[in-house]
Amino acid sequence: MITTKGLTKVYRSQGREVRALDDVDLHVRQGEVFGVVGTSGAGKSTLIRCVNLLERPTSGTVTVDGVELTALSGSEQRAGRDLRAARQRIGMVFQHFNLLSSRTVQQNVELPLEITGLDRRERRRKAAELLDLVGLADKARSHPSQLSGGQKQRVGIARALAGDPKVLLSDEATSALDPETTRSILELLRELNQQLGLTVLLITHEMDVIKSVCDSAALMRGGKVVESGQLTDLLSDGHSRIARDLFPLGDFGTRDPERTVLEITFQGDAPAQPFVSQLARTYQIDINILGAAVETIAGRLVGRMRVELPGSHTDNVVPIGYLRQQGLQVDVLDPSNGAAA
């Protein structure tokens, strides 16, 4: 649905060059919620703003719903008619909501429809329908200054949906909200994704957001995408930074070469098996649990556990084989640096 190829954005100021985006290839499939995560300054914001060409990339292409936006004519000052039409098919919500204070909630939602030239009655009907969808039908006549942050973002979402977009871009939409409001806004996004088949590309610096709504994720650092894929795939990959950040199990303590530290990841039905006690009984070994977490990610129960077995790696080949036979993902941690070997 959204594809970027070799997307690069270079800012020049006072003779210095800053590569905000460096050769970014991203692929967002239709109907999925795709999260881009990274610290501030990693280039996430530039990336999402390049998707609807609010920023013009220095090089590379952006294709949304089969239309190559970067090929459309018009510079930033005189954005071409085609580009403007394409933007009407892409909704966007912002961290600071960006609602017009001079307009009521209803009028704010009608704004994009005024731009597309819909007649007054149709605008009213559509705006009322959208406000109902986001649960703010009773606030239609209020002004944004009278709303809470969460309500403002709901208006922002209703406004973004006014043009019946297939794609919704969310630029840190929940970063200015408290945790509870964040949860309700994310639930709304998830509902819209499922009810309307909306493809959502969101950027965030919070791993929790990825955990609670995303099907796929990409990790950005220094303008590059260092990792991306579906969460279920990333989680079964012991080398995944995203998976590691989703399950912060902390430092694993011992550096003793005579002990083996394993990271066990399980998905779906696997946790139903009492594999730890089975392992202990079958091989007569003492198992030390260093850390564990179970989460629901992308609608699936996923867990990760870090355990310590006596003896070196070679001593434990058989128990590890047993665990893998049970359908578990097992990674042996290298005691020298803490990364999966």
């Binding site: 954005a79 403007r84 933007r87 009407q88 960006n98 704004l111």
Partner: peptide, 12 residues
Amino acid sequence: GLVEALKSMGAG
């Protein structure tokens, strides 16, 4: 941000 929001809606 408002100008940006309007741009994202396809406004000239």
